[in-house]
Deep mutational scan, measured.
Amino acid sequence: SEFQINEQVLASWSDSRFYPAKVTAVNKDGTYTVKFYDGVVQTVKHIHVKA
């Protein structure tokens, strides 16, 4: 599913667990740039983002 900029989502971290994050960019290659609550910004594949 498509997510929008500033949408609150759950994004997987390197430990494969999902954490609350905010979408900061929707990228043309189908990835999302997300910002976790601790301030870390990461680009993740769409399969690693869920509502």
Rank of each mutant, 00 (worst) to 15 (best):
S1L: 13
S1K: 14
S1W: 12
S1E: 11
S1Q: 13
S1T: 12
S1I: 12
E2R: 15
E2L: 14
E2G: 14
E2D: 10
E2C: 15
E2A: 13
E2M: 14
F3I: 05
F3M: 02
F3L: 04
F3Y: 09
F3R: 01
F3N: 02
F3G: 03
F3A: 03
Q4V: 08
Q4D: 07
Q4T: 11
Q4A: 11
Q4P: 05
Q4N: 09
Q4W: 08
Q4S: 12
I5S: 02
I5D: 01
I5Y: 05
I5H: 04
I5P: 05
I5K: 05
I5A: 04
I5C: 06
I5M: 08
N6K: 04
N6H: 09
N6G: 15
N6S: 05
N6Q: 06
N6A: 06
N6W: 10
N6Y: 09
N6M: 06
E7L: 07
E7R: 02
E7K: 03
E7F: 08
E7D: 15
E7V: 07
E7T: 09
E7P: 01
E7G: 04
E7W: 08
Q8L: 14
V9C: 06
V9D: 01
V9W: 04
V9A: 02
V9N: 02
L10T: 04
L10D: 03
L10Q: 05
L10W: 13
L10A: 01
L10G: 01
A11F: 05
A11Y: 03
A11I: 14
A11V: 15
A11C: 11
S12G: 09
S12A: 14
S12N: 05
S12Q: 15
S12E: 14
S12L: 15
W13Y: 15
W13C: 12
W13R: 15
W13L: 10
W13K: 15
W13D: 05
S14H: 12
S14N: 14
D15M: 04
D15H: 07
D15G: 15
D15S: 06
S16D: 12
S16H: 12
S16A: 10
S16N: 14
S16W: 07
S16K: 10
S16E: 11
S16L: 08
R17A: 10
R17V: 12
R17Q: 10
R17K: 13
R17L: 12
F18A: 01
F18Q: 01
F18G: 01
F18E: 02
F18P: 01
F18S: 02
F18Y: 12
F18M: 08
Y19H: 06
Y19G: 03
Y19K: 09
Y19C: 12
Y19R: 07
Y19P: 00
Y19I: 08
Y19L: 13
Y19A: 07
Y19N: 02
P20N: 06
P20H: 06
P20R: 07
P20F: 14
P20L: 11
P20S: 05
P20G: 05
P20V: 09
A21V: 04
A21R: 00
A21N: 01
A21L: 03
K22M: 14
K22I: 15
K22Q: 13
K22F: 13
V23L: 05
V23H: 00
V23T: 02
V23G: 01
V23F: 02
V23N: 01
V23S: 00
V23K: 00
V23P: 00
T24H: 04
T24K: 06
T24F: 07
T24Y: 06
A25H: 09
A25K: 10
A25Y: 05
A25S: 10
A25L: 06
A25G: 10
V26I: 13
V26N: 07
V26H: 05
V26T: 03
V26Y: 07
V26F: 07
N27R: 03
N27P: 00
N27W: 08
N27D: 03
K28E: 13
K28W: 10
K28F: 10
K28Q: 12
K28N: 11
D29L: 02
D29E: 04
D29P: 00
G30N: 05
G30D: 03
G30L: 03
G30E: 03
G30M: 05
G30T: 01
G30K: 04
T31P: 02
T31R: 01
T31S: 10
T31C: 05
T31D: 02
T31Y: 05
T31M: 03
T31I: 02
Y32W: 05
Y32I: 11
Y32V: 09
Y32H: 00
T33E: 10
T33W: 04
T33D: 10
T33M: 06
T33C: 06
T33A: 02
T33K: 05
T33I: 08
V34P: 00
V34M: 01
V34Y: 02
V34D: 00
V34H: 00
V34C: 03
V34A: 00
V34Q: 00
V34N: 00
K35H: 08
K35T: 12
K35A: 09
K35P: 00
K35I: 14
K35E: 15
K35Y: 09
K35N: 05
K35W: 09
F36C: 06
F36E: 00
F36A: 00
F36D: 00
F36S: 01
Y37S: 11
Y37W: 14
Y37T: 08
Y37M: 12
Y37L: 10
Y37A: 12
Y37G: 07
D38W: 15
D38N: 15
D38F: 15
D38P: 03
G39N: 06
G39A: 04
G39E: 03
V40Y: 09
V40I: 11
V40H: 14
V40W: 11
V40L: 11
V40G: 07
V40Q: 14
V41P: 04
Q42S: 11
Q42I: 15
Q42W: 13
Q42C: 15
Q42M: 14
Q42F: 11
Q42V: 15
Q42L: 13
Q42D: 06
Q42A: 15
T43C: 07
T43M: 08
T43K: 10
T43Q: 07
T43L: 05
T43A: 05
T43W: 05
T43N: 10
T43S: 07
T43I: 12
V44Y: 03
V44M: 06
V44T: 03
V44D: 02
V44N: 01
V44R: 04
K45Q: 12
K45D: 12
K45C: 12
H46K: 15
H46W: 13
H46R: 15
H46G: 15
I47Q: 12
I47H: 14
I47P: 09
I47G: 12
I47K: 09
I47F: 13
I47A: 12
I47N: 13
H48E: 09
H48Q: 14
H48F: 14
H48I: 09
H48W: 12
H48A: 10
H48M: 14
H48S: 07
H48T: 07
V49T: 05
V49M: 12
V49G: 06
V49Y: 06
V49D: 04
K50N: 07
K50P: 06
K50S: 08
K50Y: 11
K50W: 11
K50V: 10
K50G: 05
K50H: 09
K50M: 13
A51G: 09
A51H: 13
A51Q: 11
A51R: 13
A51V: 10
A51C: 11
A51F: 09
A51Y: 09
A51T: 09
A51D: 07
